[in-house]
Simulated assay, not measured.
Amino acid sequence: MSNRPDVMKLLAEARPRRLDPEPGSRIDPMTITTYPRSGAGRRRAVPRRRLVLAGALPMAAALTVGALVLTSGGGAAPDRPVPGATGPSAAAPAEPRSARELLLVAAERTGTEKSDAGRYFVRSQEHGERKEVDSAKGRYGVAVRSRIERWQATRPGDQSVDLFQSIGFVPITPADEAAWKAAGSPTRWTEPAPAGHADIVHHATAGPRSVQVIPAGRDLHLAGQPVSAAELAALPADPAALKAALTTRYRRSGGTEDLRQALFFAGRDLVAGLPAPSRVRAAAYRMLADLDGVDFLGRVTDREGRSGMAVAHTRRGDSVWGQTRLIIDPQTGQALAEESWNLGTGRKAAASGTLMGWTLLLRAGYTDETPPSS
């Protein structure tokens, strides 16, 4: 049985006053670049105590995972009044209205999780990458998509594995779909490869699923360096100390990115994919809340149709403007997705931009089950 009502009641009662909207706060103008609100943003309720990862892979063979505890991934319950609120028209708290407020709310909710234990941390993601297709009827964009389910070992002696499946390409925007149909709705196309490599044939239908063992020491990365599950567990739960630790790691890696960008990416990785304890994810959210250059994009809808709120880091300059967006469910503190956008070039940078790729976090949690071998 779900225990979400008890958790949400505690969150509603414990919400600190500092998270109330700040006077004079405003929505960032970049909100016009996000997806429109729609009824598609409501999501299916997922039991908190038991979870079947095969539901996140509809085209894959069924895979049952026993006693998987939801931690940092999607599948949040639909929007609804906060359990435990009183009065005939109990309503949810006001939505965050700044990047800082959203990230602090997410930290408060993430910090209440209890289970950070299990032989494996299982994470199911969908990856999409924009590709341009040339046809006699014109050019259009498609998303080449794949599902990766990682069984990340948390104990010495266990092997980490990836379950990989191509789930086919689809047109990205309505304009892309119209151009694709005008070209005859092809179900395959060939992507030219660099000299010396074989061309890649893409299909609109899903392919077979494969299982690959991940060599030890090459499965996790943070701030430009490999990181072990034990090192993740030992990261500081204090945001200032976490920032210092990540800064040290990044500088040792020899990376050349702007430090603020590197810290944004490291914080994103901690809250959206790595098997970090809830206390560390909460610290990562608080670190991001104090990081300069994090924009607030307001309410958005991800490629799975889930409603959330987004923050972003934008790389500005004379060359191409790029933006990385992190979409969060403010009710649960769970990261839902990451998106990469091309905003244009220099002064001509577009307000709408072009979606270049995404990662959807569909499921994440711990289990003591043994990973599949095929």
Rank of each mutant, 00 (worst) to 15 (best):
275 P>H: 08
348 K>S: 01
259 L>Q: 06
284 A>F: 05
164 F>I: 14
31 T>G: 11
257 E>M: 06
4 R>L: 09
152 Q>W: 09
119 R>G: 15
54 A>N: 01
79 D>T: 12
317 G>W: 11
14 A>P: 14
186 P>T: 12
73 G>T: 09
142 V>M: 01
211 V>C: 09
110 T>D: 11
232 L>M: 08
87 G>Q: 01
121 F>W: 06
45 A>L: 06
205 T>D: 01
139 R>D: 08
144 V>Y: 00
146 S>Q: 10
97 R>L: 06
38 S>W: 10
68 L>C: 10
201 V>H: 15
287 M>E: 09
351 A>C: 11
195 A>V: 05
206 A>W: 09
30 M>E: 12
231 E>G: 07
168 G>C: 05
177 E>V: 05
284 A>N: 01
370 T>M: 03
226 P>Q: 04
195 A>M: 04
201 V>P: 15
83 P>W: 03
122 V>Q: 02
298 G>D: 13
216 A>G: 01
57 L>W: 07
358 W>G: 03
360 L>S: 15
45 A>K: 00
196 G>K: 05
48 R>P: 08
33 T>H: 07
102 L>N: 03
220 L>W: 00
171 P>R: 00
230 A>W: 06
165 Q>L: 02
46 V>H: 13
125 Q>T: 15
6 D>R: 11
124 S>H: 10
299 R>W: 10
259 L>E: 08
223 A>V: 07
92 A>R: 11
77 A>Y: 12
243 K>N: 15
139 R>C: 07
74 G>L: 07
112 T>R: 15
123 R>Q: 04
231 E>I: 12
214 I>V: 10
239 P>L: 01
230 A>C: 07
345 T>W: 10
108 E>P: 13
318 D>Y: 14
77 A>P: 13
2 S>N: 08
365 G>W: 03
26 R>I: 05
88 P>C: 12
331 Q>Y: 03
367 T>C: 02
68 L>T: 07
75 G>E: 13
28 D>N: 09
116 D>F: 02
338 E>K: 00
64 T>Q: 09
195 A>H: 05
269 D>P: 06
293 G>T: 03
263 L>M: 09
81 P>Y: 01
275 P>A: 12
162 D>H: 05
196 G>H: 03
246 L>M: 06
92 A>G: 13
16 P>A: 11
366 Y>F: 15
304 E>F: 09
199 D>K: 11
339 E>T: 06
322 G>D: 09
8 M>N: 15
27 I>Q: 14
215 P>T: 13
318 D>M: 14
167 I>W: 04
236 P>W: 02
246 L>K: 08
279 R>L: 06
86 T>Y: 06
4 R>T: 01
11 L>R: 15
12 A>R: 14
75 G>F: 14
2 S>R: 07
299 R>Y: 08
93 P>T: 06
345 T>E: 10
65 V>K: 00
129 E>N: 00
315 R>F: 05
44 R>F: 08
280 V>A: 09
175 A>L: 08
4 R>I: 03
329 D>P: 02
240 A>T: 12
172 I>H: 05
315 R>L: 09
204 A>M: 12
289 A>G: 06
229 A>T: 01
358 W>M: 02
54 A>I: 04
369 E>D: 07
66 G>H: 04
348 K>Y: 00
215 P>V: 12
343 L>C: 08
24 G>S: 12
184 G>S: 11
313 H>Y: 13
79 D>R: 08
132 E>M: 10
27 I>A: 14
192 P>A: 05
13 E>K: 02
